[in-house]
Each structure stands twice: as structure tokens, then as C-alpha cells.
């Protein structure tokens, strides 16, 4: 667990999404929604990169900053070697560290950005993550137009990017007070179509360890939001907490971005996933809800499955991680 005594603040946020995400229940909180999955570029990967750039431009514009004013750019995505993020960083020309925690990158980047702010190395840092459906599905699963039947546990990779600008403490803004860097947990799940089941133990591990070290109860939080467990993963997580005698009231605190992302639409099976899923919800909906004062203290737990298409073909189980940040609003 890491404490941030200086309480770095989330100065501004941006969320950009693709055409399918206009069906999302969080649609009205997004800053920009593209009608083109490729953002007018020639390839999906270029579109992915463009989306990241657009999100970063919006977050800088909101805080009235130029890229020279930003000290660090911390980001990641799920494509091999994170080329979309790397290429976006080339255009942004900000000191850049690429991070990979799979879908948990949205939070791990904020943790690093808060640390850099805490030690005084950074005035402003952009942190976040992104994913683009076509590019990611292609890499991890089948070609897009291949007709395959997916089980009810499968999730839909979102096309979205979410970025937060982390700066010095401002009492009027939501601030990061503590964080837990998750361990890598593996309970032996092997199906790449059941990510929720693979990631739930990681989320459980990180949440319990955070609460224990902070000497808190679940009800100290207005909301504990996991990243992309999906409907089934969230159910499993709640069942795990129920096993350890959590009350119904406590279980109400838990929500999952992926489970809610597309509402009740059955075409998306268990819900949304991808690095952009948690990022685009945390850095739009959650931030705005905190600013309006609806939530005073939230725990954002982004979960990530650390697999590659090759690793599960080789019969490896799926190791997962979850990173948590505690955000408060005074």
C-alpha cells in the first residue's frame, strides 16, 4: 500500500470512444465519440493511436495546457509492444513511459503519476489507457468477421480511451490519497473467454489487502468499482466477499465498469472489457460524479488478465492482477 500525503489531484479528465460505445450507458459522460472505428486512418492500429492522441489533446485543452507544460505521459494498451501508445507518444512529444498491466493499466499509470507528483518530479502528468476493439480482438481471438459462437462469459473489448491529468493537490478536485499495487494472482483459470472468472480473485486479493492495511471497512467507501470483471465476474467477486461474511449492505458498494458498460444488451454477453473500459468510465463518469459530490470516497480497482494468445495455446493458466487507487473529494 502506498500513501500519498500530498494528495495529488485529478486536474482534468477525458474519455474518447468509438461508434459501438454510443450504445454505452456512460455515453453522455464521454467527451468525444467517433463515428469511425478507425478514426479516419488506414489501419485499426493507426486509429487506435489517433484515439489516444485525441484523448490526450482533450485533457490538455481542458486544463489549458500545452504539451510542453506536461512532464510525463504514462500510458499503455494491449497491442503487441504497445505500438499505438508509443506512436501517440511520438506525436505528443512528452517524456513517456509505456506501462503494461493489461486492462489494469488505467490505474497503474495513475499510481506512477501520483508517485512522480508526490516526489515533486512532475507538475502535470497524463495517465491512462486505451483499447480498440478491432485491433485487440484480432490479436487475442479470431479475425473480426469470423463467425464463432462465444460463451455467455465472453466479454466485448471496448473501443475507448480514458486519460487523467494528475497535478498538485487542489481541495476542489478529486484527489488520490492511497494506492495498492496488486500481486499477480492465478487460481488456474484457462479459458480466455472467461476473463471475469480469472480476474475476480485478483480483485478480491487487492481489495482485501487495501482495506486491511488502511484499517477500513467496505462501507467506508461510497463505491468500490472494479474495472472489467463483467456481469459474471462481478457476481463471483460478490460471492467471494459473501463467503467472508460481507453483509448485503456491504455488497451493494461494489460495482463493475465492464458489467454496466453496455447496459443489459445481451449481444455483449457478460459485458465490456479492455484497457479502455475501466479508463473511460473512471476518467469520465466517476470523476464527474465526485465533482458533483455524489461520491466522497471511492476505490477504483482495475483488473487485468496477463495472458498472450500464445500463452493460453501453450496451455498456461491465466495470471491476473488488480491495482487499486483510493480517491477522495473534500
Amino acid at each position: 500500500m502506498i500513501l500519498f500525503p500530498s494528495k495529488p489531484s485529478i486536474v482534468a479528465c477525458s474519455a474518447v470512444a468509438g461508434p459501438v460505445e454510443s450504445k454505452s450507458v456512460f455515453y453522455s459522460y464521454f467527451d468525444s465519440v467517433s463515428e469511425d472505428e478507425r478514426w479516419g486512418q488506414k489501419t485499426n492500429e493507426q486509429g487506435h493511436s489517433k484515439m489516444i492522441q485525441e484523448a490526450c489533446d482533450i485533457v490538455m485543452k481542458k486544463a489549458d495546457l500545452k504539451n510542453l507544460d506536461v512532464d510525463f505521459f504514462l500510458s499503455g494498451d494491449l497491442v503487441n509492444q504497445m505500438t499505438p501508445t508509443n506512436f501517440a507518444a511520438r506525436e505528443l512529444a512528452i517524456s513517456f513511459i509505456g506501462l503494461f498491466s493489461a486492462c489494469a493499466t488505467s490505474v497503474s499509470s495513475v499510481i506512477i503519476a501520483s508517485l512522480l507528483t508526490e516526489v515533486g518530479a512532475s507538475r502535470f502528468a497524463i495517465a491512462g489507457a486505451a483499447s480498440q476493439h478491432n485491433a485487440i480482438e484480432r490479436q487475442f481471438r479470431y479475425p473480426l468477421d469470423y463467425g464463432a459462437q462465444k460463451p455467455a462469459t465472453a466479454q466485448w473489448t471496448v473501443t475507448a480511451a480514458g486519460y487523467a491529468l494528475i497535478g498538485k493537490h487542489d481541495p476542489k478536485l478529486p484527489s488520490v490519497v492511497a494506492a495498492t499495487v496488486g500481486k499477480v494472482v492465478d487460481y488456474g483459470e484457462v479459458s480466455p473467454f472467461h476473463m471475469g472468472g480469472a480476474m475476480a480473485p485478483a480483485a478480491y486479493d487487492t481489495i482485501t489487502s487495501h482495506l486491511k492495511k488502511r484499517h477500513q471497512k467496505i462501507t467506508d467507501y461510497d463505491l468500490i468499482m472494479t474495472g472489467d470483471l463483467g456481469k459474471i465476474g462481478l457476481k463471483i467477486l460478490k460471492a467471494m466477499f459473501a463467503q467472508t461474511d460481507a453483509t448485503q449492505e456491504e455488497l451493494e458498494v461494489f460495482r463493475d465498469a465492464g458489467a454496466e458498460y453496455y447496459g443489459e444488451d445481451e449481444a455483449f454477453q457478460s459485458g465490456a472489457s479492455g484497457a479502455g473500459c475501466s479508463a473511460s468510465v473512471y476518467f469520465s463518469y466517476i470523476e464527474q460524479q465526485m465533482k458533483t459530490g455524489r461520491y466522497k470516497r471511492v476505490l477504483l480497482v482495475a483488473t487485468g488478465a496477463l495472458l498472450s494468445p500464445m500463452s493460453f495455446q501453450q496451455g498456461e493458466t491465466i495470471p491476473c492482477t488488480a491495482h487499486a487507487i483510493e480517491i477522495t473529494m473534500e
Binding site: T153, Y187, G188, A200, I232, A239, M240
Partner: peptide
């Protein structure tokens, strides 16, 4: 893990 497998199976359709 065994206990978890049970919970997982109960909650997976």
C-alpha cells in the same frame, strides 16, 4: 483455489 473453483462454478451460467 479449490474453494474458489466452487464459487466460480456456482456463479457461471
Amino acid at each position: 483455489p479449490q474453494e474458489y473453483q466452487q464459487i466460480e462454478q456456482q456463479n457461471t451460467p
